[in-house]
Amino acid sequence: MKYLETKGVDMAVELGPQTVLRNLMKRNVPGIPAFSFDNEDDILLLERKLSNTENKAGEGSGNGLKFLKMCLATAVSTKNTNWNEEEYAKGVVEPYRRIQKIKEEMESNSYEPSFEQIKEAAEMLKHIFRTKGVDLKEQRERFETISKETGFESLFEM
């Protein structure tokens, strides 16, 4: 397993029954995601990981997680002018938690978010901005910063 790691193997798929090899990979080379075809959840994760290989803007660059983290940081650091607690809960807290959930899922499964997940996070951040009452100029500036640092410029035609 260490040999595979030194040769640049970046994913392992166990085709036999059960999950013995997958579990050994996770224990011995945790940087290499391993999937078992005998496990329904693993099949879904593998399909998702393989579907993420289309090289759309920013994808394949390793910047998807950075994009999600920057969305979260921007959501928190942007001034709020809406003091309606119900609107804030629905328009800021809920979208923030959705972005956070995507990020945590990606981190725990060691794969990049899909292009659709990146777009969803951008839409959630737009929703947060609108709810907080952030003016359009500041929204554009913040999205420009995120897009330049992550390579997802094509998402931000506002």
Rank of each mutant, 00 (worst) to 15 (best):
T150S: 07
G62P: 09
P113M: 09
L136F: 15
K26Y: 07
A75S: 05
L44C: 12
S51G: 14
A75E: 00
T19M: 08
K79D: 12
A75N: 03
N55A: 09
E138D: 06
C71Y: 00
H127N: 10
P30T: 03
D38I: 05
A34S: 14
N28I: 04
G31P: 06
F143S: 13
M70N: 07
F67S: 01
L21K: 05
T81K: 12
L125K: 03
F152A: 06
I102A: 10
E144K: 14
P17L: 12
Q18K: 14
G58K: 03
H127F: 01
L46G: 07
L15H: 09
L4H: 09
K7S: 10
E47S: 15
G31R: 08
N82F: 02
K56P: 04
V93Q: 14
M106Y: 05
S108Y: 02
T150K: 05
S108F: 00
S36F: 02
P113F: 00
E153R: 08
A57H: 01
N23L: 11
I99R: 01
G8H: 07
Q117T: 03
R27C: 12
V13L: 08
H127C: 04
A122M: 06
E59Y: 00
A34G: 11
E40Y: 08
Q100T: 09
F143A: 11
G31V: 03
F152E: 08
E54T: 07
G16P: 08
F37W: 06
T131G: 08
N39I: 03
H127P: 03
S154L: 06
K69S: 13
Y88L: 08
K49R: 15
K49A: 15
K101N: 15
E107W: 02
E5S: 15
E105W: 00
C71H: 01
R22Y: 00
A57C: 07
M25G: 03
L50W: 08
I32D: 09
N28M: 09
T81Q: 13
L15D: 07
Q18D: 15
V13W: 02
E149T: 01
V13Q: 06
N28F: 04
I43M: 14
S36H: 05
N84Q: 06
S114E: 05
F129R: 09
G60K: 05
V13F: 03
C71E: 00
N82S: 10
G62E: 03
F115G: 11
M1I: 04
L125F: 01
V29D: 07
E94A: 09
I43S: 11
E153V: 04
T150M: 06
K7Y: 07
M25C: 13
L21F: 04
H127I: 00
V20W: 02
E144R: 14
T150E: 08
G16I: 07
L46W: 02
G133F: 04
V92L: 12
W83F: 10
N39G: 10
L68W: 00
E47W: 02
N109I: 01
K90R: 12
R140L: 13
M124F: 03
S114Y: 00
T6V: 10
R130T: 13
K132F: 04
Q139C: 14
F115K: 10
I118Q: 06
F129G: 12
E144S: 14
K79N: 13
F115A: 07
S154H: 06
S147G: 04
P17M: 13
T74V: 08
M1A: 06
A12K: 00
I102Q: 09
N80D: 10
S108P: 12
M1E: 05
T19S: 10
R140M: 13
